[in-house]
Design a protein around this nucleic acid. Structure first.
Lengths: 275, 275
DNA sequence: TTGTAAGCGTTATCAC
DNA sequence: GTGATAACGCTTACAA
């Protein structure tokens, strides 16, 4: 398994799903961390080939620069997870990123928030662009125009979320709410808001994408787009074991559903009372 | 690298330290998750040997049942990390577990808390017994007798911490404070206290061992024994690359220092005022 | 027509 | 300073 960030609990939870399926099928699971770096990723891909691994599940660091050719040439079974790679047709497990982002953004817009911003990931990651697309779709659905100044591309890490939030707050007209497209950046954004003494959800509303471990301990409670993380891992494990058994079966793309979990961070008492 | 719990951010942070050193030395790092299970661990150890890995860094699932003989026989370089194995003399990196636990417990006792309990890990893990030893030492240092009923052995996981806390609270004379010997169990204990509507630090004080990611977002802020996690990983990486270069150098044991970080969860306003 | 997917070329960045 | 390559935007092709 080649994942793009070992410090992200989303990816380690995925691994648990993969492990449980793979070990039941008699395989051992080894994990490599590409750290969102295509060079490290390429080194691990060639290691997978030279070590003659039975198959690989990968969350590609880049939709364009991740090179799976070596795996395809050696007929090494591959499943992409969480993200996909342009132009290659292999087994793939994703979630409905655009839809989840659209629902989350629509929830903020219909809750009365104005100037809803978006902090998304690097352009090279399909999840970042799909979630941005959903954000834009929600604006259009509400009959509003997207202000490109309200969109930030950060690096899917805590620090990136913090800095993007700080840059949004420094605007002449800061946003009234923000949709953050991954869990670590949501943590960073929350830390920035806390440092700036901005109250959630009154002054700024926030919805994240993907759950945060021990979110129950965070106050105010956090609204998030929940992913079926463990099931995504299980599904990838099943697809890979099937592919190993039947190398010539046509590739499948499985898309699992997200759900919006509404909590305190996106339901402003002031705005509710004003209605 | 064979770690005992991939869902514990402590171990994934360790891995980052290992990776940075190993990759600078030209090695690739692959990770296996033993899941605190000696059978899975044994399978990964034999995989390390049959794949002819250059060396292995392992956090042993058990001080007695973890079997490193296969590695020693094949002269595979080994470094144990976080924990050690009885009777085997290999390179090892640990922290001053007993001392950290003693300082944490002493802090609770001297803060005026009575009946300070301890939630520690499974007996098979050296970290669990060393931290329990430090807890007991703090009691003796304060001239008090340890009540064995206040000690719980759980499984180093969130759920185990929750259940241990619940069982402590169900006692006729529940504890006034608790020292929890790992981060995930601390999260579980905090969740239990929140569910029971018990206020921290007034009704119950709490100190954890090892940091929790995004602890800043948790209210009240959490007192913890901080470990130099990344440095532990780096040190293990250095020991392993040195061992690979000089296979006959005598084994080293490196012990790094912990520090107590005092926050709101262990400083009761009521007790302070009463002084 | 609109949205999605692929191909190409320019810019920017990093390593040597 | 120079070469390699990743990032990104634009354009085109195809499909709903």
């Amino acid at each position: 398994v080649i994942i793009s960030d070992i410090n992200n609990p989303f990816f380690t939870a995925l691994v648990r799903g993969i492990e449980d399926v793979a070990q039941a099928a008699g395989f051992s699971v080894v994990l490599c961390n590409s750290d969102e770096d295509v060079k490290k990723e390429a080194a691990y891909i060639s290691a997978v080939v030279s070590e003659r691994m039975a198959g690989v599940i990968i969350s590609p660091a880049s939709e364009r620069s991740t090179d799976l050719d070596l795996l395809l040439q050696t007929r090494t079974p591959v499943v992409t997870i969480d993200r996909s790679v342009r132009g290659v047709h292999v087994d793939s497990v994703c979630v409905d990123n655009a839809h989840g982002a659209e629902v989350a953004t629509g929830h903020l817009l219909s809750g009365g928030y104005e100037r809803v911003a978006c902090i998304t990931g690097p352009r090279r990651a399909t999840t970042a662009s799909q979630r941005l697309k959903g954000y834009q779709r929600a604006y259009r659905g509400a009959g509003l125009a997207v202000d490109p100044q309200l969109v930030r591309h950060a690096d899917f890490r805590e620090k990136g979320g913090y800095e993007a939030m700080a840059s949004l707050l420094a605007m002449p007209e800061p946003p009234g709410a923000v949709f953050v497209s991954n869990n670590l950046m949501t943590v960073g954004a929350l830390e920035c808001l806390a440092d700036m003494r901005i109250t959630i959800p009154d002054e700024v509303g926030i919805v994240g994408f993907d759950d945060i471990p021990w979110a129950q301990l965070i106050r105010p409670s956090l609204s998030v787009v929940k992913q079926p993380t463990y099931e995504v891992g299980q599904t990838a494990g099943h697809l890979l074991t099937q592919r190993i058994a039947q190398p010539d079966r046509p590739p499948l793309t499985v898309t699992l559903s997200t759900t919006l979990s509404i909590a305190a961070s996106s339901t402003p008492p002031a705005l509710v009372a004003a209605k």
